[in-house]
Amino acid sequence: MLEKTGVATEQDLQKAIPSKERLAKGPVAIIECFQRIPCNPCYTSCKKGAIKEFEDINDTPEINVEICNGCAVCVSNCPGLSIVVVDETYSEQEALVKIPYEFLPLPEEGSFVTGLDREGKAVCRAKVVKVLNTKAMDRTPIVSLAVPKDLSMTVRFMKLNDIYSDNTFVCRCEELTMGELRELIRKGFNTIDEIKRISRAGMGPCQGRTCRQLIMQELAAATGAKMSEMPISTFRPPVKPIKLGTIAGGADHE
């Protein structure tokens, strides 16, 4: 199949993906190189000796994941760009996937991009945690993407525009996007009041009229809570913005 489509099959990947136990210990390189070709920079670049010495230049790499510490030196050295580093200990909900990215412009740290799978299909929104571009990397920068943990073995590339949700607006006034909302829910802000305070959604001039219901729906979908039992944010006066001068003037007249 790989030969026909260029996409590694599950069978192929079995060989490359380390055990759950190893992944739980910290960052590790995942080498998705399945064809015998004359090439060995992964072995020569690894200072740890984690990649077994090639007997034949055509060998496919064998990595000792107990030695590999996920330093990612091999990532920018692999001419086939077939290596990523995955760190499943990054946070409770997210894994870090470090990918080689040889395109301009480079993404900005802190921005959101679209995570792509091995077929280039968009699969999630990913946060750019770090962009490493040293001289030693010789124009193969490494971009660290925070992705949902269950997609750590799916996301293998990115595209800059955040087609997932960077422009799907939940709150028009404060410009909270669906992706940002989901991110907050993932972080444990599980009621509308918490989301309102941390993100300002609902505090804008429309007083939450456009976003309140949408946030509650998303909370219900994400947490399994029932809309009818969910606490609702406070409805504060004034219902419509009113000028200080208007209020002051009115009081004067009496």
Binding site: N167, R172, E175, G204, P205, C206, T210
Partner: peptide, 17 residues
């Protein structure tokens, strides 16, 4: 304000800002 996205009107009755 933040992302400088073009905006038209949405509600037409002073609700949505």
């Amino acid at each position: 304000h933040n992302k400088q996205r073009p905006r038209g009107f949405y509600c037409a009755i002073g609700n949505c800002s």
